[in-house]
Design a protein around this nucleic acid. Sequence first.
DNA 1: GATTTAAACGGACAATTGTCCGGTAAAGTT
DNA 2: AACTTTACCGGACAATTGTCCGTTTAAATC
Lengths: 204, 204
Amino acid sequence: MSIRRERKDALEHRQLILRTAHDLFSEHGVQPVSMHQIAKTAGIGQATLYRRYAHKGDLCLDMLYDYSHQLMNQINLFLEEHRNEPPAFRLGGIVDHWVDAIEEKADLIIAMESKMSCEDDRGNFFHSPMYRFFRDRMSEILSEMLVSDSQQPIDTDFAAHSIICSMSPIGYFHMKQEKGYTVEQIKLHFRRLFTFYAHPRMAQ
Amino acid sequence: MSIRRERKDALEHRQLILRTAHDLFSEHGVQPVSMHQIAKTAGIGQATLYRRYAHKGDLCLDMLYDYSHQLMNQINLFLEEHRNEPPAFRLGGIVDHWVDAIEEKADLIIAMESKMSCEDDRGNFFHSPMYRFFRDRMSEILSEMLVSDSQQPIDTDFAAHSIICSMSPIGYFHMKQEKGYTVEQIKLHFRRLFTFYAHPRMAQ
DNA sequence: GATTTAAACGGACAATTGTCCGGTAAAGTT
DNA sequence: AACTTTACCGGACAATTGTCCGTTTAAATC
């Protein structure tokens, strides 16, 4: 009774699927390409595709895997380089990176998010390493900010989660299109809003 | 050349659809009921249904119409009654009402939101009266809070929009299930987080 | 009330998503 | 190397979503 490792052909198929999907998405965009089309183009059965990926959102999540690691590395580097800057500055840096990522991978991110029902674990963004990374890094920074004398302690994980939600691609693009803000303006507004925690002025 | 008003049978069908959908949703839940099933049960054609509602999310949005007006009235009443309380208190009240609404109408709201692509106007939550109502009320309250001496003015519409996004049902239920918070704990955390704008303590 | 107009109808059709199950072949066992 | 096990394969099938188009009929005009 030993653990069977993944079959060689299964691994090849996974790579084939990712390559095929990438090519099709590049050529036609994300939304117009169907799962059937991906399977057919890759020359594999429908079920083989669905066995790997529960739905297109799940596939997109995996396609973002490399990019997300790249992004996490960039951010870690940024945080390392600016470790002596005030927390608000570092939080702002994360915001900037995140917004840039949305701009660059909008199609994939939206396709991913729009398929997420609440129940199913598989392909749920909130269970991805990227979500945890963002939440944990932000949570740490928020802790630094709030270490002081607040009589009402803020739950920093909760706050980080809220910040991530408020920077959802859907909401982001609504802001951009509806109000006509530029990318830089939105970044600025986010930075001001979130770093209000760090440099608050007494109101009223 | 005059404007033709809506045909009588069209109106009847609209009401029939809403009633049928309500009954089916009550019996089986929202997600398992298909558009085909709704049309068939109502005794109308597929196209007749789709002509009214672009997709199930659009239908859900309309089903929330009455409830949303009720909710808006409740909140207006609340704001009226507590107009002399500090803005943070009033913002907190809105949060409470919103969370209660999510709890009560979760299925419909999630079905609605999960169908929203960015482009199509029809059935987009961000174009609904409810969104505008929440954004505008919150924006007003935030203005009161921030009227003071901030050298970096916060865009209150932007802030209100962000708050709405951070209270999205998907994010809310993730918090609730994953971290095991009770409804009241989440309300409290939201209140603290958002009203941090109003009673901030200097950090660092 | 007959005629015209076009909004509305609905069933059939096309496309996409998601599942089943008999068969295949790779990994472990002797 | 032959055998056993079982993860994996893939095409066919079922369900759901979304659209087309010839026909009907309510409403405006005469």
